[in-house]
Computed example of a mutant assay.
Amino acid sequence: MTAALETIGLKKRFGGLTATDDVTFRLEKGARHALIGPNGAGKTTFINLLTGVLAPSGGTVLLEGADITRLPPDARVRRGLARTFQINQLFPALTPLETIGLAVSERLGGGWHWWRSLGTRRPIMAEIEAVAERFGLTDILGERTATLPYGKQRLLEIAVAFASKPRVLLLDEPAAGVPEAERADLLAAVAALPREVSVLLIEHDMDLVFSFAERISVLVNGALFTEGTVEEVSTDPRVRAVYLGEAEH
């Protein structure tokens, strides 16, 4: 079966530094897959290569079997590859209604003009409402994003990515900075993502990784160190030495 997302011999060098070292990786369709590794392992570089933010020094990126290695980020989004960021990229002055509406309209080719004909664009409003309900944002749709609790902002960013109707969704540390009291809603929203969306989670929070992932890949020094089920990876003494053990210090 064709993978949802795949890399073959992916490399990235910055001068004499190898940040991504010949990574061959496969994200299956419908996957719940986590990518973990110590600080400096190259996780962000790898995600930037997948999404087109960085051009590789070598290797190939395939989305559902199609070569997207040289496509720009916006073209990858149109083909069904979406992401969130470690630090949210939201517009603080907009409301969630406007932000989700913009994402839906961009997907449909309307861009910033969606709101001008809001009264005649019921399909867009219906989709905004459905996305907001899925991510628990219905009660704050009219509030400025800058005033929202940080957990709600993280949920909104996932909602915006989801509104692009991706077939592959990359979640880059969605729990980063979220207070403990708000984490349950975020974990529930991630767990409830539909199976037709293949998900790669990049995360330091091992509780989230172990509760969400069915398969885990470990990146160390830019190279794929090991991969397996949650049980295999969590009990691997080499992984505990290079990653889990580090978190205990």
Results as ranks from 00 to 15, higher is better:
Ala3Cys: 00
Pro56Asn: 05
Ala188Val: 07
Phe212Arg: 03
Ala188Asn: 11
Leu137Asp: 11
Pro149Phe: 01
Pro38Cys: 09
Gly59Met: 12
Asp22Met: 05
Glu231Thr: 10
Gly59Asn: 10
Ile47Leu: 15
Pro149Thr: 01
Ser164Arg: 12
Ala241Leu: 13
Thr20Cys: 14
Pro179Tyr: 10
Asp236Pro: 04
Arg154Ala: 11
Phe210Cys: 04
Arg121Thr: 08
Thr2Gly: 00
Leu170Met: 08
Asp236Ile: 10
Arg215Asp: 03
Asn39Gly: 12
Phe85Ser: 06
Arg26His: 09
Phe85Ala: 05
Asp74Cys: 01
Met206Asp: 03
Ala223Gln: 08
Asp205Glu: 11
Gly30Gln: 07
Arg134Ser: 07
Pro174His: 04
Val190Trp: 01
Val220Asn: 14
Ala192Tyr: 04
Ala132Asn: 05
Pro149His: 03
Leu102Ser: 03
Asn48Val: 03
Val61Ile: 13
Arg195Phe: 00
Lys11Asn: 15
Ala75Val: 13
Gln86Ile: 05
Arg83Asp: 02
Gln153Lys: 15
Val233Gly: 04
Ala146His: 00
Leu54Asp: 13
Ala126Glu: 15
Ala130Gln: 14
Ile140Pro: 00
Ala159Ser: 10
Gln86Gly: 04
Lys12Ala: 06
Leu102Arg: 02
Glu157Asn: 14
Gly109Pro: 03
Arg134Gly: 05
Leu244Trp: 02
Ser164Thr: 15
Phe85His: 13
Ala161Phe: 10
Val242Asp: 11
Pro92Met: 08
Leu141Asp: 02
Leu102Thr: 12
Arg83Tyr: 02
Ala161Tyr: 08
Ser57Lys: 07
Arg70Val: 04
